[in-house]
Design a protein around this nucleic acid. Structure first.
Length: 270
DNA sequence: ACCGGAGCCTGTTAGC
DNA sequence: TGCTAACAGGCTCCGG
């Protein structure tokens, strides 16, 4: 489900609800949701800790705690976080619940159970391999050139590689390539200076638009409030197979690259 | 280094 | 309508 803009939206929604709150207890009905440490130690170590802040790195949500530990949550495909009044009715897909000191609770609902929760003393243990943040000021065209240096990979799988750039997923990879007018099957070593500049611009454009629109509710994604985002109304190619390109009218094509559905305009993207 | 395939899960949708 | 197969916004492991 969530890529950088969706995760950023979740972080912004959660922060005012949980920053400064203390986690009084943890409930869990699916122990594998907790990646590390094992559930008993996890629950013991996090109970009584205050949440100092909520932030994001790539698609990971970070909850730094008052003892120096960091809880990290990855929503993967179908994860959803929300803060609700304690005692709300149980949901069959809510597997981990963090009870807070104000009577409310943060619920991690996750239909496909791919999401994971980590509790570590050093966040780098989980985040260490991530590439640069594409919306940070130091992510320039030159950065893009450097991380592609020596690579001959197909463009689409390259953009999905979190160790190259953090936060891009299937929607925003396709959308960025559309704005950059680049065919997703191109090789990274085939891009000239203008291609790189357009790709850099395309990546930042679609991610910023996604944040502005508070995420794409194309499948299951919802904001912490339970409302839909708006980005689904602004996609140009993603899951628009057979529909006319907004720019030239030629039908959008779907192919599979790196095992992932890939949508593009065969006329505009070369 | 990189690619493809399987696996992890449940739900929805497309096609017959 | 009912059944089945394909597909789903992510990521990891394995073999080649």
């Amino acid at each position: 489900m969530p890529e950088l803009p969706e995760v950023e939206t979740v972080v912004r929604g959660l922060r005012p609800q949980v920053k400064g709150r203390t986690i009084t207890a943890v409930r869990n009905t699916w122990p594998r949701h907790i990646d590390r440490p094992a559930l008993p130690e996890f629950a013991a170590r996090i109970s009584g800790r205050a949440i100092a802040d909520v932030s994001r790195r790539g698609k990971f949500i970070l909850f730094p705690l008052d003892n120096g530990d960091t809880m990290i949550i990855h929503l993967r495909m179908s994860g959803h976080l929300a803060v609700v009044e304690g005692g709300a009715s149980d949901d069959k897909h809510t597997h981990t619940v963090f009870e807070l000191d104000n009577g409310r609770e943060m619920r991690f609902r996750d239909i496909r159970k791919f999401g994971r929760v980590y509790l570590v003393s050093d966040a780098q243990e989980v985040l260490g391999k991530l590439g640069p943040e594409p919306l940070e000021g130091d992510f320039t065209v030159e950065t893009l050139r450097e991380i592609m240096q020596g690579s001959r990979r197909i463009l689409k799988p390259f953009l999905l590689d979190q160790s190259k750039i953090a936060g891009i997923g299937n929607i925003y990879a396709d959308e960025a390539l559309f704005y950059a007018a680049l065919n997703p099957q191109r090789r990274t070593d085939s891009l000239d200076g203008e291609d790189l500049a357009r790709l850099h611009e395309g990546i930042q454009h679609v991610l910023r638009l996604g944040i502005e629109r508070e995420g794409a509710s194309i499948s299951t994604y919802l904001k912490p409030s339970g409302e839909k985002g708006e980005m689904q109304d602004d996609v140009r190619v993603f899951r628009r197979t057979g529909e006319p390109c907004f720019y030239c009218g030629v039908p959008i094509e779907r192919i599979v690259l790196g095992g992932r559905s890939t949508h593009f305009c065969p006329n505009c993207q070369t």
